[in-house]
Simulated assay, not measured.
Amino acid sequence: MTTLQLTLPWPPKELSPNARQHWGALSRAKKAYRAACAWTAKEQGAKRIEAERLHLTITFVPPNRRAHDLDNCLARMKSGLDGLADVLGVDDKHWQLTPIKSDEVGGFVRVEVRDALRVL
């Protein structure tokens, strides 16, 4: 399997674990971000992968220089990763993740997908 490189939208602030909002608004935000990531991945050529396990390197490129905790970035990305799992056809319980926070500014998330068996 070749490596798949994707650029996904930055997760909205509504998906932050620190956000306090009505459950309905949170549900709509999760659904919208999941769909946005799925469509963006499809537009960039992502499709079903025949693999048992995947390794994803997730590089967060924040929209500004404000402090963004890596663990909060990953939590905000959960719905987006679910959308990516929908497209790739590999359940995210079979993924290995390497989250990275970039020093550059841009407002997007770079995702590199590889077969996990080849990473070891």
Results as ranks from 00 to 15, higher is better:
53 R>P: 00
84 L>E: 03
56 L>V: 09
62 P>V: 09
106 G>C: 02
40 T>S: 06
10 W>M: 01
108 F>I: 00
60 F>E: 01
94 H>A: 06
86 D>F: 07
82 D>C: 15
38 A>C: 04
81 L>P: 01
33 Y>T: 05
93 K>L: 14
69 D>V: 10
56 L>G: 01
46 A>T: 05
91 D>E: 14
52 E>C: 10
74 L>G: 06
106 G>I: 02
5 Q>P: 03
45 G>T: 07
99 P>G: 14
90 V>C: 00
44 Q>T: 03
94 H>T: 03
72 N>C: 06
115 D>C: 13
97 L>F: 12
84 L>S: 04
31 K>S: 11
120 L>K: 11
78 K>S: 12
25 A>K: 15
117 L>W: 05
4 L>P: 01
1 M>C: 08
9 P>R: 05
97 L>D: 04
114 R>D: 08
30 K>R: 14
16 S>R: 02
40 T>P: 02
61 V>E: 01
111 V>Q: 02
31 K>P: 00
13 K>R: 08
87 V>M: 04
1 M>R: 06
117 L>T: 03
95 W>E: 00
120 L>H: 12
94 H>I: 06
71 D>N: 15
52 E>N: 12
76 R>D: 00
52 E>V: 14
101 K>M: 15
73 C>Y: 01
58 I>W: 01
89 G>V: 10
115 D>S: 07
18 N>H: 09
67 A>G: 04
98 T>M: 08
101 K>S: 11
52 E>D: 09
17 P>G: 04
24 G>S: 08
12 P>H: 08
93 K>I: 14
15 L>F: 04
88 L>Y: 00
60 F>C: 01
91 D>Y: 10
111 V>Y: 02
102 S>A: 15
32 A>F: 05
54 L>C: 13
36 A>S: 09
74 L>M: 11
78 K>C: 15
108 F>C: 07
8 L>M: 10
79 S>I: 11
12 P>Q: 06
70 L>N: 01
116 A>N: 08
83 G>Y: 05
88 L>W: 00
41 A>I: 04
115 D>R: 05
105 V>F: 02
